[in-house]
Design a binder for these strands. Structure first.
Lengths: 127, 127
DNA sequence: TTGCAATTACGAATCCTTTCGTATATAATT
DNA sequence: AATTATATACGAAAGGATTCGTAATTGCAA
């Protein structure tokens, strides 16, 4: 059971997924584009994430380079499943309808979803 | 800006959505079907939710009857949007694909989604 | 090698959620 | 009216996340 990443942890994971392995300074700089965070705050959080096994790190000179051990996919799945179970009675259908329901989804995206549904149907035919 | 309900708050909201207005005792009984919780724990949480404006209450004899002020729909939307923005770069498409991607969705559900997509397309044509 | 700048380590403070014990209030029952 | 059962109110403790100040360490540069 991997415990769910906290909000702060997710923020850091997002940056690592996007940029790849990074130093505390690099992460902190990106973070500060969104909100003001002290350097040692970011450091501490990344140390905790390392303790928790969410990040690995290697030493390069005197600095540590951190790498995400959780994949974006797995984390997405974990959180989508949780939301599905806790608010949509486990129904992917309900969740999807809610996600699409606000009409902000473009026609192009809708088409892509349709194509994806076709793929899924094809696969199940071949079971 | 309605702050996001916490986990404990969501648990109570779910029961209220399902059962309608309820007393603390009623909520606590349902809660205890899932996990052991003291009565005053549930009471306190519902009092806090009342303070926060998530629940209203009316007095009936010596007991309070609580009602959810947040709707299930609004809360679903709030949490889906948050997940979409924070983990899927704001893309409903990506979120939907992740939600459907684990192959646990039945053919019937897939069909329902397809029908729903048709509805959405029809609507946009009429804009 | 000595000192400087950057980095890490450590510990504490703060904030929020969750939990529950105890006290108080209220209504029904005897 | 006194007793009992049930409900609410209050306050504190425990646990976790977040924040950051300060100390210790490290590598480089003068």
């Amino acid at each position: 059971m991997i415990p769910q990443p906290t909000n702060g942890e997710l923020q850091i994971l997002r940056i690592l997924w996007k940029q790849g392995p990074s130093t505390v300074r690099q992460i902190n700089e990106v973070l500060n584009q969104e909100r003001e965070v002290g350097y040692t705050t970011t450091l501490k959080l990344m140390q905790i994430m390392h303790d928790k096994g969410q990040l690995s790190r290697t030493k390069s000179g005197k600095t540590h380079i951190y790498t995400a051990l959780l994949t974006e996919q797995d984390t997405q799945k974990q959180l989508v499943d949780k939301l599905k179970d806790s608010l949509f009675q486990g129904s992917a259908l309900k969740l999807v309808m809610q996600a699409l329901g606000d009409k902000s989804t473009s026609a192009d995206e809708l088409k892509q979803i349709r194509d994806y549904l076709d793929e899924l149907s094809d696969e199940s035919e071949n079971d």
